[in-house]
């Protein structure tokens, strides 16, 4: 069989590309929603983590340690077959919960570390000028925390995309599952899986591209100042 024929079989025959695209969409959905909730939740956990109240900060610390220290697949299985076994949630919902929780721990830790890395003297300087606690945080600390956190956040997103490939375990037909099925159906595993990997690679570079674009826009604004 020639390469063209193989390609036809894998991508076109029986609207195969549509199946693959729908899998890609599921992957994107889970990633995007988890990213949103995970980031918000992570910021919340980080906030709790830096409270003076010992109990609160210890609980937040344990939350971060447990979620960062265990495989996300385990959490997925625990939630699907254990915690929510009788709740009747759709698998996608459980997947989103899982990845939101997991990402939130990573985001919380990232923000905590970034917050420690900034020059607290600048916040004090803002306070002595008369700015309130909130203003000093929002105008001086936060922009710097985000700037420090950005490169790691970017790779957290890429990791998240890749980690969603395990949702097939709870019968979600995501990109990985679709690729796997297609490979079995067409009996062209090498080509099919290569296509799948290229799609994941494309997604990762899309993320890097978006960040680079944001950077460039900011750069333009700086130059215009």
């Amino acid at each position: 069989m020639s390469f063209q024929e193989q390609l036809y079989k894998v991508l076109i025959e029986g609207d195969s590309y549509r199946t693959i695209l729908s899998g890609l969409l599921v992957t994107l959905q889970i990633t995007a929603v988890s990213l949103l909730f995970g980031t918000l939740l992570g910021a919340g956990v980080c906030f709790l983590c830096t409270r003076k109240n010992k109990a609160v900060s210890v609980i937040a610390g344990v939350y971060i340690a447990v979620l960062r220290g265990t495989p996300v697949l385990m959490l997925l299985l625990l939630l699907y077959y254990g915690v929510f076994a009788r709740a009747g949630f759709a698998p996608v919902v459980v997947a989103i919960m899982t990845f939101s929780l997991n990402l939130s721990a990573h985001v919380a830790e990232l923000l905590r570390a970034s917050a420690q890395a900034i020059d607290t003297g600048q916040v004090e300087a803002a306070r002595t000028l008369g700015l309130g606690r909130r203003d000093a945080f929002r105008l001086v600390a936060l922009p710097q925390i985000l700037r420090i956190a950005k490169p790691v956040y970017q790779s957290l997103i890429v990791n998240l995309i890749q980690w969603t490939s395990v949702v097939g375990y709870i019968s979600i037909t995501d990109l990985t599952r679709v690729i796997n099925n297609t490979a079995a159906r067409t009996m062209q595993p090498f080509l099919t899986i290569t296509v799948g990997m290229l799609l994941y690679l494309g997604l990762s570079y899309l993320v890097y591209g978006i960040f680079a674009l944001i950077d460039r826009r900011k750069g333009v604004r700086h130059a215009a100042d």
């Binding site: 020059d119 003297g121 600048q122 004090e124 300087a125 803002a126 306070r127 002595t128 000028l129 008369g130 700015l131 309130g132 001086v140 922009p143 710097q144 700037r147 100042d225």
Partner: peptide, 22 residues
């Protein structure tokens, strides 16, 4: 406190200019 601080300025050993601003 914030209002009272307005009438005082403080200059630090390590300057502490806001590094993300010009």
């Amino acid at each position: 406190v914030d209002r009272i601080r307005r009438s005082m300025g403080m200059v630090y050993q390590k300057f502490h200019l806001f590094s993300h601003m010009n």
